[in-house]
Design a protein around this nucleic acid. Structure first.
Lengths: 230, 230
DNA sequence: TGCCAAAGTGGCAGTCTCTGTCATATAATT
DNA sequence: AATTATATGACAGAGACTGCCACTTTGGCA
């Protein structure tokens, strides 16, 4: 791999890596980078909503955001990523969950707490709230965005699993840990979807409540899971 | 949409639709089609294993399979699909699960039974067994294949959910049903992954047993899920 | 303050994926 | 055997993405 490639990789959003909590000095460079990330993402959302993903070209997005196509690809690896990468504050959730796990918290609680905090923060910020809703709607209606979202989710789960192994030592039941992370992530995604659906219908809904409902529903069924099958 | 597009769609594997159980007369045409599907898939597996997905072009696969690039795309919509589409006998599982659900079986049991039957059939057919192993290994090591697999999985879950709603009427708890299907599908996938890992290490493992272990493990944790969070 | 190295940007060429179209060939139907 | 429905390959063309290079901007640092 060439040096150029390495540098590019460092600066391309391959999954989700907005350093939300890093309170570094952040010079002009970093500030502009974030602004551009945001602008490009907004342009993508806008165009996807208006014309659909397939009808929207990278050139369209780049032009709307006022950058060249070449530069677009330095910010997002695909047009789908422009919408999916920072999709809700995933970066924050991951950081908190990993931190909690490394601090010795039970894995399920660590991840669930991190999500709960995000839910609350979303409720507190009307702007993020609205943006998240638009993104979820898009992801629901556009298969290519869903595909990208699921891939990102899988990547996050692997990170979490790695963190858990790292924190708890190799004695941990990796398989079950991975399964639990997956179930929680999935449930969260379904909760967001349902939330988007309800808001769409005019009802006002809370992601948190939907998640808890879903959780309870799963629990009811799961009580039988320790029984043998057949 | 033009007529050509419609026809093409009918004949392109967009997810997984090998009509495994259709005992129709099956003329020469259909037989050849299946042979080609298989050959192309084999070529893809072979080349992906040898050179990796990104290093393998559609032209490479097409040439190896002895068809033109244009024809390749009439069989599979992307090079990833050539490996992921018929990935284990998903078609069979889906058909059986949907049939059972329409016949009034409980949704969880319907899907789990269908998977169990596939596990057993895999154990009974060394060839399919081996092929499945190669595919799972590839999917594990190649992110683009994983992405495709997850997207296919999501598509299947929607089909199942639709079948459940259709069979049980709109009174059903769609949200929970979708969640249960997702959890089962996910668990199955993780079981296959673990199975591939173990076989890799020389241990001989059974997907069925791993699935049941995982199921029990989840059940143990899930007993607490009906308790309120915090 | 002024200079230098590091980093960001745009343009261009080139590869690869994927689709529409059409002429040709092969199976299915009657 | 004649007709029709499908499959195939070749070609053209759009769009996604990458490497490369010239040029500009930013962030220290003397």
């Amino acid at each position: 791999m060439t040096e150029t490639a390495t540098l590019a990789a460092r600066y391309t959003i391959s999954m989700n890596q907005l350093p939300v909590l890093t309170a570094a000095p952040m010079g002009l460079r970093e500030r502009r980078r974030r602004d551009t990330l945001r602008e490009v993402s907004n342009a993508a959302i806008e165009l996807f909503e208006r014309n659909g993903v397939t009808e929207t070209t990278v050139d369209d997005i780049a032009e709307t955001a006022g950058i060249s196509q070449r530069t677009f690809f330095r910010y997002y690896s695909t047009k789908e990523q422009a919408v999916c990468a920072c999709d809700v504050g995933l970066g924050t959730v991951m950081e908190r969950a990993v931190a909690a796990i490394r601090a010795g918290a039970p894995v399920v609680a660590a991840l669930e707490d991190a999500w709960m905090r995000l839910f609350d923060e979303l409720d507190a910020s009307p702007e993020e709230h609205r943006r998240t809703l638009r993104v979820r709607r898009l992801v629901q209606s556009e298969p290519t965005l869903l595909a990208r979202t699921l891939a990102n989710e899988a990547e996050r789960i692997e990170e979490l699993t790695a963190a858990a192994v790292d924190a708890a030592g190799p004695g941990i039941d990796v398989l079950t840990a991975r399964a639990l992370f997956t179930v929680i992530s999935t449930t969260t995604r379904l909760a967001f979807d349902e939330w988007a659906r309800r808001v769409e219908k005019g009802a006002d809904a809370s992601v948190r409540d939907i998640y808890l409902d879903l959780r309870r529903g799963l629990g009811t069924y799961a009580k039988h899971l320790t029984d043998d099958l057949r």
